[in-house]
């Protein structure tokens, strides 16, 4: 059990010639909650897809439970995915099925369990996220927070060893935020799984995680325990934790000077006005 569950070494990935990730190293031990943080569009979700085997890295290794994910054949990859859960940003519930059928989906697809046992298991999972009473509702009848909890129940249906959360806190009200955060921690501890949380919600995640990776411009900018992160003097981390506009992460997407785009010399214009 000393071997980490997820081990990423020197990982690079890009769409075409545009690099997304450059030389990522990341380790997630068993039973831990790991946060991957960074500004929007920095490749965090891509990282999860690489771990899940949906994308192939251009370079480097990804090992999950001792298996090299990029080298797995379709069948072996599917076997590995049965032991992984993934929570999509907006839940990605199957809209043509009830909440119950959504949670039962994997049990029905991957096991030959009798319907009575499936029923018990599903109700237990739904109870764990506090939505046993909503079993017969359709996803369209749920609020955003509830949908995400159903998706969580669905992700843990097969008792996976690893769950990946893609922005679990996005768009939640403060109460749902706290509930979801605590639930991630509680389920991780109760089921003995490992959780990878991709998020940009610093305050909430620092409360529940064991270790944090900061990703920026495709590289890991900083890492450490929540305490280390809070105390960190790195300007990038400081900007991120405190949500400041000025700092190493620019507000503007790279562009030519505004004056050039507008066809006027802003400096001259300003100067004349002052004069």
């Amino acid at each position: 059990m000393s071997e980490p569950l997820v081990e990423i070494r020197d990982l690079s990935f890009g769409y075409g010639s545009r690099p997304i990730l450059k030389g990522i190293n990341l380790t997630a031990g068993r039973g831990q909650v790991i946060a991957i943080m960074g500004s929007s569009g920095c490749g965090k979700t891509t990282l999860l897809r690489l771990i899940g085997g949906a994308l192939r890295p251009t370079q480097g290794s990804i090992r999950v439970d001792g298996l090299s994910v990029p080298d797995l054949k379709q069948r072996a990859l599917f076997d590995l995915r049965k032991r992984m859960g993934m929570l999509f940003q907006f839940g990605a519930l199957f809209t043509d099925m009830t909440v119950f059928d959504n949670v039962a989906f994997q049990l029905r697809e991957h096991t030959d369990l009798p319907e009575a046992i499936i029923r018990d298991l599903v109700l237990m999972k739904l109870h764990a996220v506090g939505l046993r009473g909503a079993a017969d509702l359709l996803p369209s009848e749920l609020s955003g927070g509830m949908a995400r909890r159903v998706a969580l129940a669905r992700a843990i249906a097969l008792d996976p060893m690893l769950i990946m959360y893609d922005e679990p806190f996005a768009g939640l009200d403060p109460i749902s935020l706290g509930v979801t955060g605590n639930m991630i921690r509680r389920l991780t501890d109760a089921l003995g799984m490992t959780s990878l949380v991709v998020t940009h919600d610093v305050q909430e995640s620092l409360k529940i995680v064991d270790y944090v990776y900061f990703v920026s411009n495709g590289v890991i900018e900083a890492e450490g325990t929540p305490a280390e992160i809070r105390a960190s003097g790195l300007p990038f981390v400081h900007q991120f934790v405190h949500g400041e506009e000025e700092g190493p992460v620019p507000f503007h997407y790279p562009a030519v000077d505004l004056g050039v785009d507008l066809g006027v010399d802003l400096g001259v214009a300003r100067g004349e006005k002052h004069a």
Partner: peptide, 21 residues
Amino acid sequence: AEIGLMRATEQIEAMQMMAVD
């Protein structure tokens, strides 16, 4: 429309991640 929306709302991808083709 149904399949397109299933893709747009990541349902197809979720299914793949659940090891269902």
